[in-house]
Amino acid sequence: MTDRNDGTTLELPSDQEILITRAFDAPARLVFEAVTRPEHIRRWWAPRSRGEMTACSVDLRVGGEWRFAMQAKNGMNVEFYGTFREIDAPTRIVQTEIFAMFPDVVSVVTLTLTEKDGRTTLQSRVVYPSKDVRDQVIASGMEGGMRESYLQLTEVVRSLA
């Protein structure tokens, strides 16, 4: 586990998972709103230091699609999309996640919001189709050297096909 002063922790609970945890000083219903409404997502999903959000749509119902895209500062367009599988507002969402460059690689994200004394702990658990894919996602880090990482990921995906 890595835990710095900013309170965001990353754990690798199994070979194919990443678990990210962060607490927010607000009730679950507000955190839920902030992570599901496009007008709010636009304000945080693409951190200012990294790029600009170019697409954001959310059809929040089971079977509905979501799509986020960001123009990274290194010029790359990074796009993710998926489908909602379970929605239990304001505590739980299960959705698929696909990185547009590799449409065959489907990950499953479970978001849980646990409220206690007015504070909410957000947990995002991503299950990747293999350990190799998970490791490449971490290695890419969404920044410098990303292109190389994606090229490596291409090879991983090819080897899985």
């Binding site: 309170g7 690798l12 607000a26 507000l30 902030a34 945080w44 951190p47 890419s140």
Partner: peptide, 25 residues
């Protein structure tokens, strides 16, 4: 260092999400 790069992305996102949540409050 390897896991930190990915964690840092989410840490940055959540720092900005803090501001959104504050506005909603």
């Amino acid at each position: 260092a390897w896991t930190e790069r990915y964690r840092a992305l989410w840490a940055e996102r959540f720092d900005e999400l803090d501001a959104v949540v504050d506005d909603l409050k």
